Amino acid sequence: MRTGFPDFRLGNVLSTSFTGTLSERHGDPVERIPTPQRLIDWLAEYDLAVDSCTPAQLELARDLRESIHAAATAAALQEALPAPAVKIINDRSAQGRAAAVLTPEGARQWRLSPASLVEDALSVIAADAISILAGERDGRLALCASPTCQAAFFDTSQSHTRKWCDMNTCGNRQKKARYNAAHRKSPSRAK
């Protein structure tokens, strides 16, 4: 991992993890893919390795990220999906050349060719978002309970009642804040 950048928040769901490359959307936003190389690094974490990325491809990725976030947020709130977001997700999905392959363990994995482009990797992310938004997978879209985050995430817990996009960050931060508030001495009792 390259130093000088915020750590990636890596999750089990590709498309919602991708939306997490911009966190704290309602606080002080943290951009986790500020450079083309950083996008290459993130894609490699999800076995979607590409050799290069231009600034224009980085913008395509950010447009897809924001479109997935907008559509996932609408779905979590049980609102109509925004048409511009749906168009971008569909366009990115259709423009890639990735292939779904079956692993010996019986799992689906995406294969990019050695000459794959960022657009090919983005098509995989868009296809993942489509499968979630279309309700093809067991789980539900939800929004992080942190008032500064409110990231869309795909809740695959057995009860589908998860509250945080990431327990190690948002959940822990909120639990600490509640604990500190409950144990703070009131000014009248302090000497």
Results as ranks from 00 to 15, higher is better:
Ser188His: 12
Thr73Val: 14
Cys149His: 01
Ala61Arg: 00
Phe153Val: 00
Ile40Trp: 01
Met167Arg: 08
Ala190Arg: 15
Ala75Phe: 00
Ala181Trp: 05
Phe8Leu: 07
Asn90Ala: 05
Glu105Asn: 13
Asp128Gly: 08
Val86Gly: 03
Ala61Ile: 10
Pro147Tyr: 14
Ser17Phe: 03
Ala49Asp: 06
Ala44His: 12
Pro6His: 04
Gln37Val: 05
Ala182Asn: 09
Asp155Leu: 01
Val86Arg: 01
Leu39Ser: 06
Asn12Tyr: 04
Asp128Glu: 10
Pro114Leu: 11
Arg32Ala: 03
Asn90Ser: 06
Val13Arg: 15
Gln57Gly: 11
Ile130Asp: 04
Asp128Thr: 09
Ala182Trp: 10
His160Asp: 01
Asn172Tyr: 12
Asn172Lys: 07
Gln174Arg: 14
Trp164Cys: 00
Ser186Val: 10
Leu60Cys: 08
Arg62Asn: 04
Tyr179Gly: 02
Asn90Phe: 00
Phe153Cys: 00
Ser15Gly: 08
Gly96Trp: 02
Thr103Tyr: 12
Gln57Met: 14
Pro55Gly: 13
Ala152Leu: 02
Ala49Cys: 05
Asp7Ala: 15
Thr21Ala: 07
Ile125Gln: 05
Arg2Ser: 14
Ala99Arg: 15
Arg137Cys: 05
Pro114Cys: 10
Ile89Glu: 01
Thr148Ile: 06
Arg2Asp: 13
Phe154Trp: 02
Ala100Thr: 14
Ala85Glu: 06
Gly139Tyr: 05
Leu58Pro: 04
Leu10Cys: 06
Pro187Met: 02
His160Glu: 07
Gln158Pro: 03
Lys191Val: 09
Ile68Leu: 06
Ala74Val: 04
Ser186Ile: 12
Met167Asn: 14
Cys149Arg: 04
Val30Leu: 11
Pro55Asn: 09
Ala100Val: 08
Asp63Phe: 01
Glu24Ser: 13
Ile89Val: 11
Pro29Ala: 03
Gln150Arg: 15
Asp51Glu: 15
Pro104Ile: 03
Val50Cys: 07
His69Thr: 08
Ser23Cys: 07
Thr3Arg: 14
Ile33Pro: 11
Gln174Val: 11
Leu117Thr: 14
Arg189Gly: 04
Pro147Gly: 05
